[in-house]
Simulated assay, not measured.
Amino acid sequence: MYVRDAIGRVTSTIVCGSDLHLYHNEFAGLEKNDILGHECMGIIESVGSEVKNVKVGDRVVVSAVISCGYDGCRAEYVRVPFADVNTLKIKSDVKDEQVLFLSDILCTGWQATVLGGVQEGTTVAVWGCGPVGWMSVMWSRYPGAKKIVAIDCCEERLEKARLQGAEAINFSKTDILKTLQQMIPGGPDICIDAAGFRFAKG
């Protein structure tokens, strides 16, 4: 282990859509015995001699955008490179399920709204209402988007987007472009693709 790394015992992890792409051989590179996963949290079991911000016993969320180059986090233990900047300490009274999204999904939705330029008064359409779509809807509300439209074919997901303050279009039941133009004449200022890959529709 490098002096700035830590070893963590994984307590929770999430299956990401990118894991599924690898699993279904839609991306090249997955080899026999590779361990998938890049979104996890756990308990620090050991730290390198130069690690200052976390200690043994700390409960942390691990950043999803780092890698040791060998394995994923769907394992019992993970090595966290540069642990001082790639972990976020979590209080003991918070459940894993309440903070695990900090590893990737919540940040991905935030990045989509920042890169898209969502700000007060803008109109936003979010294609795909899975976890990243929900987070994109939530983060679009934060700076004060005037109208947010969530687009999907799954009513359960659309209902969750409605609970986040979005209006919804079920593209399997209506003409999406016509309906969107009626809801936002001239079209939305910002469109976020939170479905991606082969799942994108519209």
Rank of each mutant, 00 (worst) to 15 (best):
M1R: 04
Y2L: 15
V3L: 09
D5H: 09
D5W: 02
A6G: 14
G8L: 15
R9A: 12
V10W: 09
T11Q: 05
S12H: 14
S12D: 14
T13G: 02
I14K: 05
V15H: 08
C16G: 06
L22D: 02
Y23Q: 11
N25V: 04
F27W: 15
L30S: 08
L30K: 14
L30P: 00
I35S: 07
L36V: 04
L36N: 08
G37P: 11
G37V: 13
H38F: 10
E39M: 09
C40M: 14
M41V: 06
G42L: 06
I43N: 01
S46G: 06
V47L: 08
V51Y: 08
K55Y: 01
V56T: 09
V60D: 01
V61G: 00
V61I: 09
S63W: 04
S63P: 01
A64F: 10
C68R: 12
C68I: 09
G69H: 01
G72M: 06
R74M: 15
R74L: 11
R74A: 14
A75R: 12
E76T: 09
E76M: 13
Y77L: 15
Y77V: 11
R79W: 04
V80M: 08
V80S: 02
A83P: 02
A83F: 03
N86V: 08
K89S: 12
K89Q: 12
S92L: 11
V94T: 05
V99T: 04
F101K: 00
F101Y: 01
L102G: 07
D104I: 09
I105T: 14
T108A: 15
G109P: 01
W110P: 00
Q111K: 13
T113N: 15
V114C: 11
L115P: 00
G116I: 06
G116A: 07
G116L: 04
G117T: 08
Q119A: 13
E120F: 14
E120M: 13
T122F: 03
V124Q: 05
W127K: 02
C129D: 06
V132D: 07
G133S: 13
M135N: 03
M135P: 00
V137A: 05
M138C: 03
P143K: 08
G144D: 12
I148A: 07
I148K: 06
D152C: 10
D152K: 09
C154Y: 12
E156M: 12
L158R: 00
A161N: 05
L163R: 14
A166E: 01
A166G: 04
E167V: 03
E167K: 00
I169H: 01
K173P: 00
K173R: 14
T174S: 08
T174K: 07
D175L: 03
I176Q: 03
L177V: 14
K178D: 10
T179D: 02
L180Y: 05
M183W: 08
P185N: 08
P185H: 09
P188S: 13
D189T: 10
I190R: 07
C191M: 12
I192D: 03
G196K: 01
G196W: 05
R198C: 00
F199E: 13
A200P: 00
K201G: 06
G202F: 10
